[in-house]
Write a protein that binds this DNA or RNA. Structure first.
Length: 311
DNA sequence: ATGGACACCTGTGGGC
DNA sequence: TGCCCACAGGTGTCCA
């Protein structure tokens, strides 16, 4: 479920507490939540306990915690899948339903905290992974000898990425995101525009909700060929995507059920700003035509049949 | 390169 | 009340 704004809401909630914290314990209640970890449960615990967390970093929908380690830089990598949550609780806080992994830590200020990974569908995961230089390292980018070369406030994290996420492109809220390059690549795609927006190797962070919203705002049909867009139209679409992601981050993300919560278990309120997604049958805020839902790529696509005609 | 189908999962809500 | 089906913010892989 979570897309960039939801993951960013989680990241910004974790960072003040976990940056600089030291892991004191790990409890794995659901082994399938570690399916992307290369080793077994014991290995996962051994790699975490006693380690210091240096920062909380996000690209697209991936989130990771670089760990202090000698030699090769490593990180705890998390993905929320369709239903993941990362909650911060005091140890005495009532158990949360569907908790899969609990990581106990001591923060820089000496407080005990529990990081609870909650995930109904178990599409999300936690894993330890190597950090490698990102393909398009920005100005001044370099590969460090080890994480020890970094501190929690460093901006350099933008040039490292977990090996397992190396194929994920920068997202529109990344300082080193290049609109020009993405527009260029987008217009060479011989595919439908929504498929291109959801291609995490072209730009990351956009999922089904924000794709539908950006297409609605730009009056584009989901199956419009990406290569048919003028440079200006492609630019306008990318602007829509960026603005929508920004506003949604400010709103704390979109929550329409129990599946998305911030680190305190609270809902975001971007739902009130949705124009197309989940609005099947309700009037298009622009022209009043009922919003339609089409089955598309094993999921749903919501659009205004009048404003968003296929050309 | 593209896209479709499917696998990975649990839970909820609607219709009957 | 129960049962069955559709549906849900994602990703990855295999196969035409």
């Amino acid at each position: 479920m979570p897309e960039l704004p939801e993951v960013e809401t989680v990241r910004s909630g974790l960072a003040p507490v976990l940056a600089g914290a030291t892991v004191t314990g790990v409890e794995v209640l659901e082994p399938r939540s570690l399916k992307r970890h290369p080793g077994d449960i014991t290995d996962f615990k051994n790699q975490l306990v006693g380690r210091q967390i240096l920062a909380v970093v996000r690209r697209g929908k991936f989130l990771w915690l670089p760990l202090a380690a000698e030699g090769t830089p490593i990180a705890l990598v998390g993905h929320l899948g369709m239903s993941g949550q990362m909650l911060l609780r005091t140890p005495d806080f009532a158990p949360d339903k569907l908790t899969r992994v609990i990581i106990s830590a001591r923060s820089l200020s000496g407080e005990s905290v529990e990081f609870r990974f909650v995930d109904q569908r178990i599409f999300g995961s936690l894993a330890i992974d190597l950090l490698v230089p990102t393909m398009d390292a920005g100005p001044g980018g370099f590969a460090p000898e080890s994480n020890a070369a970094f501190d929690a406030r460093s901006q350099q994290w933008s040039n490292l990425i977990p090996q397992s996420a190396a194929h994920i492109a920068r997202d529109p809220l990344d300082d080193n995101f290049s609109s020009r390059t993405v527009i260029e690549r987008l217009r060479k795609k011989n595919t439908g525009i929504k498929r291109a927006l959801l291609d995490q190797g072209l730009l990351s962070g956009v999922g089904n909700i924000y794709a539908d919203e950006a297409l609605w705002r730009s009056r584009l049909h989901y199956d419009q060929q990406a290569s048919s867009l003028s440079k200006a139209k492609a630019g306008e679409l990318l602007e829509s995507v960026t603005e929508i992601l920004r506003s949604a981050v400010l709103a704390g993300g979109t929550s329409f059920d129990e599946q998305y919560k911030n680190v305190n278990g609270e809902s975001g309120y971007f739902e009130v700003s949705l124009n197309a997604y989940g609005m099947t049958g309700r009037p298009c805020p622009r022209c009043g035509t009922p919003i339609k839902r089409d089955s598309w790529a094993n999921r749903g696509s919501h659009f205004c049949p009048l404003c968003q005609k296929l050309r």
